[in-house]
């Protein structure tokens, strides 16, 4: 099946900076695809080119078989957008905004339901300017979904949401995907990327540094596994024979084994075989954050 989104060698610069240098990826139908990367990496620029909001300098783009550069009007009816930066008129009320955006499309969703789902019913008659940051954000997400889009672009959707609202948002976005939509999600939250995205691209300096499922990325770029347990004075020389074990350190009674791949299970198996069942055995896996920092460096490079 043809991918819903195809990006080939996208390039986009502003007056003095190259924002997107060379980005290629594709997103399959019904996928939740994440874009992760440091500030200024070019995520928003990439997404805005796909939405037809910016003109690419080079490369080939396709969304739902439509060229977002030349047929933006056609695409807008099929896509939903939550932009990183935008606003509504100060004095427009929550229900008016939803009602208005619902009128833009003949097959819109029932907006009172959306208002309820995104926890805005109590704010129905509140003006946009009186909403809190998180409430505005939820309104923008609801507006992005009101025309029942086939592709949804969410640029830092959960910025400013409290932890409960974030988890709620994840559930709702999974629901949208299960309803047949494809989702492109820009985020700075590792747990969000790990929990919500089927695949993700790590973008750095306008290029894709890595691309894959969260699990694959962790295995490939930060496959480090660590097992610790207490063993007293027991002889552990057999540990070195176990495949995937790289290093064994003893600090008093505590043993720390470092390795990769299935090392943890193998060590646990070995312990049982040698008649040891330490109750405090812990394993530590690398996280997406380790991958991120490894690929993009830490600190504020930009």
């Amino acid at each position: 099946m043809k991918p819903v989104i195809e990006v080939e060698h996208l390039r986009k610069g502003y007056a003095s900076v190259v924002a997107v240098d060379d980005v290629s990826f594709s997103v399959a139908d019904g996928e939740i695809f994440g874009l992760l990367g440091p500030n200024g990496a070019g995520k928003t620029t990439t997404v805005e080119c796909l939405q037809g909001l910016r003109r690419a300098d080079g490369g080939h783009l396709q969304v739902l078989g439509i060229d977002p550069q030349s047929q933006a009007g056609q695409l807008r009816a099929l896509m939903g957008s939550q932009l990183q930066e935008s606003a509504l008129p100060d004095r427009i009320k929550v229900w008016e905004a939803l009602d208005l955006f619902a009128s833009f499309s003949p097959h819109s969703a029932d907006w009172p339901t959306l208002m309820e789902q995104w926890g805005l019913s109590a704010k129905r008659n509140a003006s946009f300017s009186s909403l809190s940051g998180g409430q505005r954000q939820r309104l923008f997400i609801a507006l992005a979904l009101v025309n029942r889009p086939k592709v949804v672009f969410l640029d830092e959707m959960t910025a400013g949401l409290d932890p409960g609202a974030r988890r709620g948002a994840w559930e709702l976005i999974r629901g949208i995907r299960d309803g047949g939509a494809t989702v492109v999600l820009v985020t700075h939250f590792m747990d969000e990327a790990e929990n919500l995205c089927d695949r993700l691209a790590i973008v750095d300096h306008g290029r894709i540094a890595a691309l894959g499922t969260p699990r694959d990325l962790i295995t490939e770029y930060a496959g480090e596994v660590r097992v610790t347990f207490s063993a007293g004075e027991a002889d552990l020389s057999w540990l070195a024979e176990i495949p995937h074990v790289r290093q064994v350190k003893r600090r008093g009674p505590v043993v720390e084994v470092a390795g990769d791949g299935p090392m943890a299970v193998l060590v646990a198996g070995g312990l049982v075989q040698h008649g040891m069942t330490p109750a405090d055995l812990r394993t530590e896996q690398s996280t997406l954050e380790d991958v991120f920092l490894k690929l993009t460096g830490s600190g504020m490079g930009n």
Partner: peptide, 17 residues
């Protein structure tokens, strides 16, 4: 004012002409 505040940005991303 709509342009300055980003209201036009939001409208532009919607199907409105």
């Amino acid at each position: 004012g709509y342009r300055e505040r980003g209201v036009l940005r939001r409208l532009r991303a919607s199907p409105i002409h």
